[in-house]
Structure formats: C-alpha cells, structure tokens
C-alpha cells in the first residue's frame, strides 16, 4: 500500500489477521469463569446460611422450608410443575410477541408523525399508571379464563419500555447523518430505513431485556388472579394448602425462566446486530 497507510500507524492493528486473533480471544475459559463464579459463590453462601438458620431455629416448614426441602419437594412434583410451567411459558411468549407488535407499531407511527407523538406519548405514560392488580381481575371478567386476558396483562406490563426504547432509539440517529441521507436524495422513509432504524437497534435490545424480565412476572400475576393452569394458579393453590415449599419451588422455576429468556435476548441481539458487539469490543480494546 501507499505511504498514507504507514502514516496512519493504526493500520497494522486492523488487518484481517489481527481481527481473527481478536475473535479467538472471545472463548476465554478464565474470563468465563470470572463472570460465572462470583454470582454462583454468593448464591451458595446465601443458601447454606438459610439452610443452617432454619435447622438451628427449628422454624416450621409451613412458615419457612429449607432450600433442600424446596428442591426435593419440588422435584417430587416435577410433572405438575412442568405442566404449569409450559402454560406460563406459552402465556409469556404469546403475550410478549403481542407486546412487541404493539410497541413497534406505536413507535414507528410516532416517529413519523410529530402530531401523533404529542398525542400518544402522554396516553402511553398514563397506561403505565394503571395498577395491574386492579385491572387483571377485570380482564378475567371481560375476556374469561382463556389466553386473551393473560396476553393483555403481559403486554400491558411489558410494551412500554420497548416502545419508549424504540422511540428514543430512533431519535438517537445522528442529525448530520439524516442530513447526509437527505443530501443523497433520500426521503423520510428511506432515511428511516437507512439511519433511524439501525441506530435504534442497540436501545431496542436494552429495552427488550428490561421488559422481558417483567413478562414472566406479568404472566404469573395474570394466572394468579384466575386460570386453569400456569405457575401463577399453582402458587395460589399451594399457598392455600400451606405448601410454602411448593410455592417457593414454583418461584425458583419462574426465576430460571426469566433468566433464560433474559439470556436469549443476548443471543438474538448477537444474531440481529452482530456489528454492535464487534463495535463495543473494538472500543474496549482501545
């Protein structure tokens, strides 16, 4: 190459070979361990402390069971819990899909119309002040015990962060980039497609992560109020039977479910916007 490249100095670090080296560093067992180990250790210490405290004080299991009892009793009920978990997962996924659809439609419409933005945003904020505790039983009265009311509760609990994340993401697009696109002859739609939409993707995934943790909780809450099956109604029934251990076993399952869905968002993000990871990594390397 020419003398210009040498003057840049940086070039050697950016050759494809260097990029491969950087890529290989990704699966580093030491780093993986250093991320996974601390939470596991802390959790283990907490659980052991709990186990010991219950055994020493002799609290009745109806009040507070030991973690080992929660696990063993939960394992004994695994078939029932599995059936209820599947129902909850279905409500969560259908509800969240519906929530995504609503959030995208609102965000895109609002992005194209300042008038609608001013009209719709306050309503969205107002929708978040509705206490779900009050609205969930009404949903059952209106829509029965089927999937519909639960999907609506999940959507109500999760669409807002996604919609706001998207609206703000679209606005994160560089104004000068919009000018550049306009100078190339782009109209509003082309500008949206080439600049605003991709610019919004990192914010979208951040919002997605926040709201997916609400999704499982929302589904369980909807089921708690009234359902034929699901972890929510299972918890409610076990509570009424003073089976605190089984309530907690269901809680553990729902936590695992939430964490799993949370991790899936990273996977999806990596598939949809691989550039974002590479960019972040490149910035950290500097």
């Amino acid at each position: 190459m020419t003398s210009i490249d040498r003057a840049d100095g940086y070039v050697a670090a950016a050759t494809p070979a260097a990029r491969d080296r950087r890529r290989r560093r990704r699966i580093d067992p030491v780093r993986l361990l250093s991320t996974v180990l601390p939470p596991v250790l802390i959790l283990a210490v907490l659980l052991i402390g709990w186990e010991v405290a219950v055994n020493v004080t002799g609290v009745r299991p109806q009040v507070l069971p030991t973690p080992s009892r929660v696990l063993s009793e939960g394992w004994g009920q695994r078939e029932a819990i599995e059936m209820h978990t599947k129902a909850t997962l279905q409500v969560t996924l259908v509800g969240f899909a519906f929530s995504l659809l609503v959030a995208w439609v609102i965000a895109v419409v609002v992005d194209f119309s300042g008038w609608l933005r001013r009209g719709v945003m306050p309503l969205l904020v107002a929708s978040q002040t509705i206490p779900i505790v009050a609205i969930a039983p009404l949903m059952i009265i209106w829509f029965g015990f089927g999937l519909m009311p639960k999907v609506l509760v999940v959507a109500l609990a999760t669409f807002f962060p996604i919609a706001v994340g998207l609206v703000e993401g679209f606005n994160k697009a560089d104004r000068e980039a919009s000018n550049l696109l306009r100078s190339m002859g782009a109209g509003r739609f082309t500008e949206f497609r080439y600049v605003r939409l991709p610019s919004a993707m990192p914010s979208f995934f951040t919002a997605l992560r926040i709201s997916i943790t609400y999704a499982v909780v929302g589904a369980i809450f909807a089921e708690y109020v009234g359902a034929e099956k699901g972890l929510g109604i299972y918890m409610s029934m076990q509570k009424n039977a003073f089976r605190t251990d089984l309530v907690l076993a269901a809680v553990v399952v729902s936590a695992v479910l939430s964490i799993a869905l949370y991790l899936v968002t990273f996977l999806v993000e990596r598939l949809v916007i691989p550039w974002s990871f590479k960019e972040r990594k490149a910035r950290h390397a500097d």
């Binding site: 003057a7 840049d8 940086y10």
Partner: peptide, 11 residues
Amino acid sequence: DSHPFELSGGM
C-alpha cells in the same frame, strides 16, 4: 469488508 471501527481516522 471491514467495519468502520476497525479503521484509522485517516482511512
């Protein structure tokens, strides 16, 4: 086929 963040300012 590089990405912009892999290039120097001059490039």
